[in-house]
Design a binder for these strands. Structure first.
Lengths: 160, 160
DNA sequence: TGTCAATAGATGCAATGTCAGTAATTGCGG
DNA sequence: CCGCAATTACTGACATTGCATCTATTGACA
């Protein structure tokens, strides 16, 4: 992936864009991970789960819903929730209509920890990520990549 | 809902930009990981190592250099190299001047596997990532995030 | 009602990653 | 030359993750 600055052949810019995503993610997340563990004693994966529950109606989600929304550890969710539950931040509850299902709910303690951790986490992200971009760049990246989250991107994988 | 172009309050766009980075990375990488394992029988972490060696002068790097450049698995490099070496894709060699050191070199087989894997990997990235962005968006993201890789971003972490 | 595929989670095992501690080597200061 | 801190890489204990499998429950249907 060397020389393709040629204006007649702009299609290779995605490689640099991808590299940027890769590096930004890795570097910022590494710092944020360290910081969170030091301050709060739990990793970003926990905060991800807590935040999903926080945003959910009733502060609770079924395992499967959690799995769909969670960025990290698509699998292994059972044990992840085990640990968070052991720490008292969430609680498993039976689902009224379906005896197979389990609902994971935020405990009051979990909510407190979430609030504190989230604020500090965002501060770190702002310092390490947002602060390195101009407002225009922030807007551009947000617009360009919006499709990856508020969008469904199943499509092109059908053919296996 | 979309109007935050307000100059008095532009600072919140980085949150959406960050979310985009997070999601794009996670979703695209997950697909690429599966694909690579299926096709080549090794994970992206291997390709990362192979690519670092490929780009290095003499197709070789010391463990520490490898660790600094590697995006994935900052730690655990010893065992990672163990595995790749066991597969015959790299070879450990003593360093002439320093008997503590170890140089990790790409084998001919490693080079072949790298070439093939890299091409296919890039194809997947293009399909899953590049293909979802317009050329203008690709350019914008590449420009905005360039600082995270060709740049040094040590600075603001000094105070711990 | 009995059978069976589908769904929701959990579990076993192997692979991988993390962290602290170890061993060998180097280079400095006396 | 000798002791000692720094550097380089590895090892072992342990936590986490991924994958395939397993159990329980549900819902469709004959």
């Amino acid at each position: 992936m060397e020389h393709d600055d040629d204006p007649s052949r702009p299609a290779t810019r995605w490689a640099d864009a991808w590299r940027g995503v890769l590096f930004a993610n890795a570097k910022v997340l590494r710092i944020a991970e360290r910081d969170l563990v030091e301050r709060e004693g739990f990793p970003v994966a926990w905060l991800d789960v807590l935040a999903q529950l926080y945003d959910a109606p009733g502060n609770a989600l079924r395992m499967q819903e959690l799995e769909e929304r969670s960025l990290f550890t698509r699998s292994g969710l059972t044990r992840l929730v085990d640990r968070i539950e052991a720490a008292g931040l969430v609680r498993r509850e039976p689902v009224p209509g379906d005896r197979r299902g389990v609902s994971v709910a935020l405990t009051p303690e979990g909510r407190r920890r979430h609030d504190r951790a989230f604020v500090e986490h965002m501060r770190v992200i702002e310092r390490e990520f947002g602060g390195r971009l101009t407002p225009a760049e922030q807007q551009a990246v947000a617009d360009a990549l919006a499709g990856f989250w508020h969008g469904d991107l199943e499509s092109p994988t059908t053919a296996g």
